[in-house]
């Protein structure tokens, strides 16, 4: 029964593996963009101006309250429509161009990831003792120095558990992108099911692969947390 998971023309092993590659690439491409959005929105949430804070709160409320699949379709279809009307405006009657599903998927996932990450990062900033920042000011550090030497190293420590959970969620949410025709693990599994007519076997294998990916990530995250906390006394 393992024949059908062999590599090459007779088995689905290589197809599933290429799907896994796309899944990992999706998650890896989303992470930096999502973190950047998260940092930016966290700054908005902590801004002095009421307007900026309202924008930040509005963004996180919206993105955390909508189903991920709705966000995905809004980005995929919405940007597609916008591009179409844009190209019609400049080249009437032209064929126009479509947004690539991979880019749409990464964008939607990053928008959602950023909203959740903003709350985690804000929590991390709040957890930094005020006295340390004052101490930095007292010995004449510039705001940039305070950020790089005091805030950021500790932010990492405080935010890592939360960001780790978000990473696990992101890995799983990449499966949604299969709905808009990205050849990730989920979609390659669907293709294999279409040919072999063994849905349970193949979806179980797909589940197992995601599971291993998550367990592997959990181990790596636990190790990163230990490393981030190496200079801190255990309570």
């Amino acid at each position: 029964m393992f024949d059908q998971f062999s590599f090459g023309n007779t088995g689905w092993g290589d197809e599933l593996l290429s799907g896994l590659g796309v899944t990992v690439r999706l998650a890896a491409a989303t992470l930096p963009v999502g973190l950047l959005i998260g940092f930016g929105v966290a700054q908005l949430l902590m801004a002095r101006s009421f307007m900026l804070r309202a924008v930040g709160v509005g963004y996180t409320t919206l993105m955390r309250g909508l189903p991920e699949i709705l966000t995905l379709f809004m980005v995929y279809n919405g940007v597609g429509l916008a591009l179409k009307s844009f190209s019609q405006h400049f080249a009437p009657g032209g064929a126009g161009f479509d947004i690539s599903p991979f880019v749409a998927g990464t964008t939607a996932l990053a928008l959602v990831f950023g909203a959740f990450a903003a709350e985690v990062i804000r929590g991390g900033f709040i957890a930094i003792p005020r006295g340390q920042i004052e101490a930095g000011q007292a010995i004449g550090m510039s705001p940039a120095q305070i950020f790089w030497r005091i805030k950021l190293p500790q932010l990492w420590r405080f935010a890592l558990p939360g960001l780790g959970n978000l990473w696990l969620g992101l890995l799983k949410d990449t499966s949604l992108v299969s709905i808009i025709a990205v050849n990730d693990l989920m979609r390659m599994t669907k293709v294999a099911v279409g040919v072999t007519k063994q849905p349970f076997t193949f979806y179980l294998v797909a589940c197992a692969i995601y599971w291993v990916l998550c367990l592997f990530s959990e181990t790596a995250l636990a190790r990163m947390e230990r490393r981030a906390n190496r200079g801190v006394a255990r309570a």
């Binding site: 799983k172 990449t174 989920m186 099911v193 849905p199 349970f200 998550c214 367990l215």
Partner: peptide
Amino acid sequence: VSFVRGTPLLAQLFLVFYGSGQF
């Protein structure tokens, strides 16, 4: 608990919805 938390909801849905056909 570990299985449910480690796999995507969509994969679980397909496993039950399409997978049941195999049985």
